[in-house]
């Protein structure tokens, strides 16, 4: 399908539906992924994870994050006395909103997208950089040395890892020939390497790994979680936050995980097609299947992120920076050159 299912005659209705869909996904998916993180992390550590909180008859901790959300909502709103009030108050929003906005351009299945921008990839990557400002705002306005250190580390790290992220995506764009995310999925559907249909992850394995690593660093996930190193600087830029503002930061982390995994799925893993060349049935069944396939791929990538969190210690910032500037960026540039050469020859 080339048109979104929201392309209705009544533009206002279409807009309303799009907003509702994006919001609904934005609020539900991170909760599900958060639950998966709790349980998977628990079982990897030979324990159960949350078990008592439940929704109705289902126990096994399914209601844990809902309970957490309610808990955060009813907390006292504390702003430190010497903090910069307005900056402090707005920072969580600035960190959270970009994740929501990127969801607008990501396709989840045939016809299941809100907007298909011609510059989809560019838009997504540009918007994701805005959340860095939210972190810096939080760190500086908290009037706390630990927060400041966390913010400075975050700024350095996120800027360093923007480049491998963008360059890896650029290699995909060169291969697909379009910046539109829907276009990239369709291009992968008809892509063959030496006659075998494969998603971009296979010939551009290096690019895929780099994108994934850079995404981990963008989200401050272990092993790149020096900005939030719990044992050292408590919670980095989030130290002084409590209540719903802290919940916003947490939500932005999980939403970011979902969004980055979705981007990786679309760019490298073939989007909503099970395998390039395998067509989907048309109509509602196809849309449903496509959505399920996309969610399956996203869940797998989020699982790998959680797996990394359980296993790896933290990299120190200078090692982090060295890794990015001295290893990832040269490799990403090399990847682009190779892809361009092959594109011209083939």
């Amino acid at each position: 399908m080339d048109t979104s299912i929201f392309a209705l005659d009544n533009a206002w209705l279409a807009l309303l539906l799009k907003v509702v869909a994006v919001l609904a996904f934005f609020l539900v998916a991170p909760l599900v992924m958060g639950y998966m993180e709790h349980k998977v992390l628990g079982h990897m550590q030979a324990r159960y994870g949350p078990m008592e909180a439940g929704l109705g008859p289902i126990k096994h901790g399914v209601g844990q994050l809902v309970a957490d959300g309610l808990k955060f909502l009813q907390k006292e709103d504390i702003i430190p006395a010497r903090a910069d009030r307005w900056v402090f108050a707005l920072a969580p929003g600035v960190a959270l909103i970009p994740a929501m906005i990127i969801l607008v351009v990501i396709p989840f299945g045939p016809g299941l997208w809100a907007e298909d921008l011609d510059t989809g990839v560019f838009f997504a990557l540009a918007v994701s950089s805005v959340s860095v400002i939210g972190l810096l705002m939080a760190a500086w306005s908290s009037n706390n040395k630990y927060s400041l250190m966390g913010g400075i580390r975050a700024a350095a790290q996120l800027i360093a890892y923007e480049l491998p992220l963008v360059l890896a995506a650029a290699a995909v764009v060169v291969q697909a020939g379009t910046l539109s995310l829907v276009g990239i999925v369709e291009a992968q559907h008809s892509f063959t390497a030496f006659g075998i249909p494969v998603p971009y992850a296979v010939p551009q394995l290096l690019g895929f790994l780099m994108f994934f690593t850079a995404a981990l660093a963008e989200l401050s996930r272990p092993p790149f979680d020096m900005p939030i190193a719990d044992a050292e600087i408590i919670a980095g830029h989030m130290t002084e936050y409590t209540g719903i503002r802290f919940a916003f930061f947490m939500l932005s982390e999980y939403a970011g995980m979902v969004v980055m995994s979705a981007l990786a799925t679309v760019l490298f893993l073939g989007g909503w097609y099970l395998w390039p060349g395998v067509p989907l049935p048309s109509g509602w069944l196809g849309a449903l299947l496509g959505f399920a396939i996309t969610m399956g791929k996203i869940t797998t990538l989020v699982f790998v992120m959680v797996w990394f969190r359980a296993t790896f210690p933290r990299l120190r910032e200078d090692q982090l920076q060295r890794f990015s500037w001295l290893i990832l960026i040269p490799l990403a540039l090399l990847q682009i050159v190779v892809v361009a050469v092959f594109k011209v020859l083939a």
Binding site: H43, Q45, A46, M51, F308, T311, D318, Q319, R322
Partner: peptide, 30 residues
């Protein structure tokens, strides 16, 4: 301090956590 490249050690660690994931947890639900 040279930069580190991912090598076998990281994969062995991943293997350990995956193995533990598939085993029954040792917690007693008090």
């Amino acid at each position: 301090m040279t930069a580190t490249l991912p090598q076998v050690g990281l994969l062995k660690g991943l293997g350990v956590t995956l193995k533990t994931l598939l085993k029954k947890p040792t917690t007693q639900q008090y």
